[in-house]
């Protein structure tokens, strides 16, 4: 369970504070795979980043004892001047991976970068970077994976592979996912959280949530 307690989150702007959440209280059940639904600007990414502690609420707390991944977006934390291998080692070291060499091999195998793994990321095609980012996260054992649109990039064969890996993950740990492709969400998620006007509603049935979302 991830407990959200009295959370305020706002961004300062020249026309005053822009509140995303105000006095938010919510429990996110862990154990199911959850889709985050909401319109543009509803605060999906903000909530996502706060769950990962990449960002902090202005007030209140988010409490959990789960091991949560970083928000795996298209190329988070990957330096273009370093090779795929160096980036992998960096991410592994920061996250406290026990056996870095082993981790390196897993990422290399999964990302299917072959020789490119030892070339700077700047030389990668736009589809290869997210492949690396995704491989880096899926190769670590987390309790909760935060996945932001990454499974929708790459070529068809990698997509299949990523989906398969994520599907396997979703059996043993939880996945919280943001995507604008409903088919994607229906593949992995069984429940959903709908964000609207700073409020969160949990639906144990994804299809019901999608219906509600379409009505918005």
């Amino acid at each position: 369970m991830i407990q959200i307690r009295n959370v305020d989150k706002y961004y300062n702007s020249h026309i005053g504070r822009q509140y995303v959440f105000q006095d938010l209280n919510f429990d996110i059940p862990i154990g199911s795979n959850i889709a985050l639904l909401g319109k543009n600007g509803a605060g999906k990414s903000t909530l996502f980043r706060m769950l990962a502690k990449s960002e902090y609420p202005n007030a209140g707390q988010i409490i959990t004892d789960q091991k949560i991944s970083w928000p795996v977006a298209l190329a988070s934390g990957i330096h273009p001047a370093m090779t795929g291998r160096e980036n992998t080692r960096f991410i592994g070291k920061v996250n406290g991976v026990e056996d870095l060499d082993d981790y390196e091999n897993k990422v290399k195998r999964f990302s299917e970068l072959d020789k490119k793994f030892d070339l700077p990321v700047a030389t990668y095609s736009s589809g290869m970077r997210p492949r690396l980012a995704f491989a880096c996260s899926v190769a670590i054992d987390f309790d909760v994976y935060l996945i932001d649109e990454v499974t929708s990039v790459g070529d068809a064969s990698f997509k299949r592979k990523a989906r398969k890996a994520l599907f396997r993950k979703s059996q043993t740990s939880s996945v919280i996912m943001v995507s604008h492709q409903m088919s994607e969400l229906q593949l992995f998620c069984d429940s959903a959280i709908l964000l609207d006007a700073g409020k969160l509603v949990f639906y144990s049935d994804l299809d019901e949530a999608i219906e509600r979302y379409d009505e918005l």
Partner: peptide
């Protein structure tokens, strides 16, 4: 899959600073 070590705050700092220094030198 790669397991993650349980580290205390000091070890996390040490690992992060080391990784960042390597990154600094490398880039």
């Amino acid at each position: 899959m790669a397991t993650v070590l349980k580290r205390n705050q000091w070890q996390i700092w040490k690992d992060v600073i080391f990784a960042l220094m390597v990154r600094e030198v490398r880039t």
